[in-house]
Computed example of a mutant assay.
Amino acid sequence: MMALGLLAALGIVFFFCTHPTSGSYPTAQNVTWKSNNFKTFLTWEPKPSANYSYTVEYSALGMDRQRNLLCIRSSGTWCDLSDSLTDLKACYTADVLSEPPLGASSEIIEFPYTSAPKFCPYKDTNIGKPEFKLEVSEDKRMTTLYVTDPPTALYKDGRHLNIRDIFSKDLEYKVTYRKNKSTGKKVLTSNSSVIEVKNLDRGESYCFNVQVYIPSRSPDKQLGELSLTQCSPDDPTIVTTYSVGVIAAAIFLILLLIGIVIAVIVVCCKHRNKALKNEKEGVPLRDKV
């Protein structure tokens, strides 16, 4: 009888080890949204053991909950919801449920879960750094920036969308520029992808940075990632090519050379005039008729 009781006890232990109750499933921790250019992931930790898995449920506020087919009873610690959050101006909530592993059954009705904070793609996705090209005007007083609107992770009617397709009139660009090798900065904003920076000093090289600016967002989300720095080419002049000492020495040599030339001309003229005078004095007067 004792042996049978021991076997029964071991069976119960084995059952609960292979079919744990809701309290025995560890819940997900650090559930966080990570989104860049509308490429949106829900992430969490830790990686589950072989005894349980994770399922993600999400919904727009006030709507029914849904599941992404790739994030049901998964052993991963992230879920790509980029294509699931179709209404970009809506706000979403999500839960990460701890469930039995794929293929296992359970009598539990409600599994433990951890909720993610509210996420609004239009207001919260981070915007990456833009790329741009420079063109300097003929008079060297204006530089035009041709900005490429950053692409997003989204498609519509088979076309890859960029951030201007989504933000439209809300999209602006902030340009920060300065003279090369200078720390003083100036800033301008433009709602166009073609930006003219005017009234620049002729012959100076300027350096530019560009970032997306969304004024309608909260202050901490208005600016995108800063672009790489690009500088316009130098317009070499005597002042920028040579030092002040070299220029001063060159001017002195030129003036000295001019002085020598003038002195030689003066001496030559004096010698010529003297020779002519002597020649006239040496000619005898003609006798009167």
Rank of each mutant, 00 (worst) to 15 (best):
L81I: 07
A60I: 01
C79K: 03
Y92S: 12
T77G: 00
Q29M: 10
T40G: 09
N51S: 12
S98E: 02
L88M: 13
L10C: 15
G62K: 12
T40K: 10
G62L: 09
S24W: 05
S22V: 07
D83E: 12
D80N: 15
P26C: 09
I108K: 04
K118Q: 14
L85N: 08
F15M: 02
A94Y: 07
S98P: 02
F38R: 07
Y52I: 05
C79I: 07
T55W: 02
P101E: 07
Y52G: 04
D95F: 10
R65F: 05
N36K: 15
L102V: 12
K47R: 08
K118F: 04
M63R: 11
S82Y: 09
S106H: 04
N51F: 04
L88W: 11
F15E: 04
E57A: 04
M63H: 05
C71K: 02
I72N: 09
E45K: 12
S53W: 01
A104D: 15
A104G: 00
A8L: 15
S22H: 02
N51C: 00
T27R: 13
L85C: 08
C120I: 05
E57M: 09
S35M: 01
T32C: 04
L61S: 10
W44L: 08
L85H: 08
S115P: 06
F41S: 07
C120N: 01
L70C: 04
N36S: 14
N37D: 15
T21Q: 05
Y92I: 11
I108Q: 12
G76Y: 08
M63E: 14
C120Y: 01
K89F: 03
S53R: 09
T21Y: 00
R67T: 13
A94W: 12
H19L: 01
T114S: 15
S105W: 12
S24R: 07
C120D: 07
Q29R: 14
W78Y: 15
I108P: 01
S24A: 14
Y52T: 04
T55C: 01
L97A: 11
D83V: 05
F119W: 07
S53M: 08
T40S: 14
S84R: 12
V96A: 06
F38M: 14
R73V: 01
P100T: 10
W33Q: 09
W78D: 12
T93C: 00
W78Q: 14
S22N: 02
V96H: 01
A60D: 05
L10E: 03
C79M: 09
D64A: 09
V31N: 04
V96R: 02
F16S: 03
L102T: 11
K34C: 01
S24L: 11
